[in-house]
């Protein structure tokens, strides 16, 4: 059993195992810290920065920052909400997101965060990049217009599927998701049963022939806004129920 440390998030005292990340420790106590590039079970990389918190006053990504005894973490402050809102808006203008036509609408974490943050339209000008759609694979479609560069597919394929189907090429604003072949997803060994197929937070990787099985309005975040499943645990704790 590893060492237990205590610290505070937004004034609430929290216990966690040393070595746990702030994001994981918060989650275990029913505090939701928004995230996009991180997914439970993956090695965090701190890429999207949506999980930015202040630790003893200094900004840090909660998905990578380990807890330490006595730290003071700010999570739900106006300043942090404002930064996160801006980052989500940046992701919207960086790609080509048309939620109203998107198969992922209602199941999309980016869209769900936008709702959570009360974003109606991004304040920044759209960059309208030219990006490719790869429909070569018999079962899976890759629409790069919607890719937010989170790298979840890359890490899932490499670390959980043992395959390395995805990877990034170029750098900076030209960074693009590539596949482990000369060009086409069909020429990789990606399989419909790979976990990577389910890793995408947005509508960039989709299973063919499944898009409208669940009608819009009844989808994951239509039923339960993002973060609430974590936060209802907080209620349970406060009401005397058992967390986890």
């Amino acid at each position: 059993m590893s060492e237990i440390v205590t610290f505070t998030i937004d004034g609430r005292r929290i216990s966690a195992e040393a070595g746990q990340t702030i994001l994981a420790a918060a989650q275990a106590c029913g505090i939701y810290i928004p995230r996009l590039c991180h997914k439970d079970g993956l090695t965090p990389v701190g890429g999207c920065r949506v999980c930015t918190v202040r630790v003893n006053g200094r900004p840090a990504s909660a998905c990578t920052q380990p807890v330490a005894a006595g730290i003071v973490v700010d999570n739900d402050t106006e300043e942090l909400r404002s930064w996160r809102r801006q980052i989500v808006e940046m992701l919207f203008v960086e790609g080509n997101h048309f939620c109203m036509f998107c198969e992922k609408s209602g199941n999309c974490e980016l869209q769900a965060l936008a709702y959570r943050f009360g974003i109606t339209a991004p304040r920044y000008p759209y960059l309208w990049p030219k990006r490719d759609v790869d429909a070569s694979h018999p079962d899976i479609i890759l629409d790069r217009n919607r890719c937010i560069m989170c790298g979840r597919c890359e890490r899932t394929s490499r670390d959980l599927d043992g395959k390395s189907v995805f990877g990034f090429v170029e750098r900076g604003i030209h960074k693009t998701l590539a596949v482990n072949a000369d060009a086409r997803l069909a020429d990789t060994d990606l399989d419909l049963t790979d976990q990577a197929v389910n890793a995408c937070p947005v509508g960039a990787i989709l299973k063919k022939r499944t898009a409208y099985r669940t009608p819009v309005g009844q989808r994951q975040f239509d039923r339960e806004p993002i973060g609430t499943s974590v936060e209802t645990r907080a209620k349970l704790t406060i009401d005397g129920g058992e967390p986890r």
């Binding site: 990389v45 701190g46 890429g47 999207c48 920065r49 949506v50 801006q86 980052i87 940046m90 992701l91 203008v93 960086e94 920044y124 000008p125 960059l127 937010i148 560069m149 990034f168 170029e170 750098r171 900076g172 604003i173 030209h174 960074k175």
Partner: peptide, 21 residues
């Protein structure tokens, strides 16, 4: 900075470009 950003994180990858524009 736009040319040299590695592109790993959102604020630098997208934000520098927005400032430049």
């Amino acid at each position: 900075f736009v040319h040299e950003s590695c592109g790993e994180c959102t604020p630098c990858r997208v934000g520098t470009r927005l400032i430049k524009e």
